[in-house]
Nucleic acid binder design. Structure first.
Length: 570
DNA sequence: GCCGTTTTCGGCCCGACTGTTTTCAGTCG
């Protein structure tokens, strides 16, 4: 069993504790699950070495449960608990305003066991007859079920970010000074639940009116004194909260989260004799104000300002305490995009158009990486066409005043060999090697396949190293630990691919790579001119992975990056 | 169930909102 499976098991314990009504045990299991999921290394080695209890949140009892599951593949205690409740009960709590308490009552008093049963009971007006429920609750439940069925998935960062930033800049351009996206969007999480915007204004009605007249809004769903929601033309909902300017900093901190991070800040506040809420940091005894701005609140708690992307309870509090927060990568550090497709394979823009756009974006160089010949579906280039385009790249470079690097995204074939012969690859500026086929290999085979590929001295970057597609395809099974070790040894960079469905490596694996001394290459995998803008998604993910400028090869100057690409010829 | 600049027991974040209630439990963020 791997870390994720153990984490799932602990989450199941947590869900069941929720039903039992023990929120403290629920929280304990959740914390343990989170830490197991983000564990540096394999949980089985912790078990073998008797170090399970060194994992934060894992004590004697949870360690025993983990050990038992690793040994026997089963957890009798979990099975006993599961037997006490129908398996569909947890899904009931996905319906808004239905928590464990109500779900349990619906089960006990009406025999409702799952979403389907809930829907039927609501339609038959059986719910409104329960004490504490009424007609309105019943209607809300029906609406809630519809929401769960229709919208169980979250939005991609790539969809939410441009929308959120556009609304933000609209408000700013119309005179609102204190405005920011909040929530998981501000933290640049790979998927987003809601687009939340926080405004600080002493003229709240004005701000609300401005928001309600956003040009691309389709309808105003809700408009109150402090909260408004609009629906945009494409169906996306955007929520706005307006607070007095004096509360803006604390409110933004609060709505940015993560929940776990802000809970920790509040705990620290209490220990110091303070109280932290969405209005500010106050002295517990006399209620006087200690701090109101984000950075002042952090400082008063003895912390450096934690960038939003790091607020995930992954060690940022300790780092902020010790002045060890990373100096995170910035968009302006990136000197070129290293993963771009042209019309020669499956892209929509020509080399020249891409060069012009890259120059407009302020890049010094642009790496073109069309697909190789075996990838028929993407019109992979023949070796001849590829080599012919090397000369074209030189010409475009001269004429457009930006360096166009001719590379390739070469397929890693079944046996780990590459899709072009070495004498072809050696004439290119750089090479990305990627897996595009046979995703279901056993882990050992896939790992060997990739290791062999990056052993080739012509390869400079391993493209989208896990192959996952958000909401569409799981990562393929591969021992990233070994891949990172080998990449480090070989002087090969791992890619952080900024394509909205990929973001691969993800935040956690990017951080692992960095910690192992592996360099990252961030690229957009652009197939059209506007896709070059996906660099912001890659940078956001890189920041969540604690990456700094020196961890990323395409922050290097042209001369330096050429040297990096020369690894094989030395 | 975990954990210790108050600690091996007694806490474990805080406030708003909603719908159902005449004083509040449950849920959410």
């Amino acid at each position: 069993m791997n870390n994720a499976e153990i984490a799932d098991l602990l989450h199941e314990f947590a869900d069941l504790m929720d039903l039992k009504g023990d929120v403290f045990k629920r929280n304990a299991y959740r914390r343990a699950a989170q830490n197991v999921l983000e564990l540096d290394g394999d949980i089985t080695s912790y078990y073998r070495e008797g170090r399970l209890e060194s994992i934060p949140g894992v004590g004697e009892s949870i360690a025993k449960k983990i050990a038992e599951v690793l040994e026997t593949g089963r957890s009798p205690e979990l099975e006993d608990l599961q037997a006490q409740y129908p398996p569909g009960l947890i899904e009931l709590t996905q319906v808004p305003d239905l928590g464990p308490k109500k779900a349990l009552r619906l089960y006990r008093e009406l025999g409702i066991q799952d979403l389907a049963g809930l829907k039927q009971a609501a339609l038959e007006h059986r719910i409104r007859r329960l004490e504490g429920f009424g007609e309105r609750s019943e209607k809300k439940i029906l609406q809630g079920i519809e929401l769960v069925e229709r919208n169980s998935g979250r939005m991609l960062l790539g969809d939410a970010l441009p929308i959120g930033l556009a609304v933000e800049s609209y408000l700013r351009q119309n005179g609102i000074e204190h405005v920011s996206v909040a929530g998981s969007l501000r933290r640049r999480k790979e998927t987003i639940g809601d687009i939340d915007i926080v405004v600080g204004s002493d003229l709240p009605l004005e701000a609300m009116r401005l928001f309600a007249s956003y040009p691309r809004r389709d309808a105003v769903i809700l408009q109150g004194p402090t909260r408004s929601s609009i629906r945009l033309e494409d169906g996306t909902q955007v929520d706005l909260r307006v607070v007095p300017i004096s509360d803006y900093g604390a409110t933004l901190l609060y709505f940015t989260g993560s929940k776990e991070h802000t809970v920790e800040l509040r705990r620290m506040a209490i220990q110091m004799g303070y109280k932290l809420n969405e209005y500010g940091l106050f002295r517990k005894d006399d209620g006087s104000v200690v701090a109101r701005e984000e950075k002042d609140i952090y400082r008063a708690l003895g912390l450096d300002l934690v960038p939003p992307e790091l607020r995930e309870m992954r060690g940022e509090i300790e780092a902020a305490k010790d002045g060890r927060l990373p100096d995170l990568l910035r968009s302006e550090d990136v000197r070129g995009d290293l993963h771009v497709h042209t019309v020669m394979s499956d892209g929509h823009a020509t080399m020249r158009q891409l060069a012009q756009e890259a120059k407009r974006l302020g890049y010094e160089y642009l790496g073109l990486t069309d697909h190789s010949s075996s990838l028929r579906i993407a019109h992979g280039l023949s070796a001849e066409d590829l080599l012919d385009s090397v000369e074209e790249a030189r010409q475009v470079s001269e004429e457009e005043g930006i360096v166009v690097l001719r590379g390739s995204e070469v397929d890693i074939l079944e046996d780990g060999s590459l899709d072009y012969p070495r004498e072809v690859l050696s004439q290119l500026d750089f090479v990305i090697a990627s897996v595009h086929s046979l995703f279901h290999m056993p882990e050992e085979e896939m790992t060997e396949r990739v290791l062999r590929a990056i052993s080739d001295p012509e390869v400079n970057i391993l493209g989208h190293p896990t192959g996952r597609l958000l909401g569409r395809r799981e990562a393929y099974k591969i021992d990233l630990e070994r891949v990172m070790e080998h990449a480090h040894h070989q002087g090969v960079a791992l890619e952080l691919n900024g394509y909205p469905y990929r973001l691969d490596l993800n935040d956690l694996n990017s951080r692992k790579a960095k910690e192992r001394g592996v360099k990252l290459s961030i690229g957009t995998d652009a197939h059209a001119l506007e896709d070059l803008n996906h660099m912001s998604l890659a940078v956001g993910t890189a920041r969540r992975g604690w990456l700094e400028k020196q961890d990323v090869i395409n922050t290097l100057s042209l001369a330096q990056i050429r040297r990096f690409f020369e690894r094989g010829s030395s």
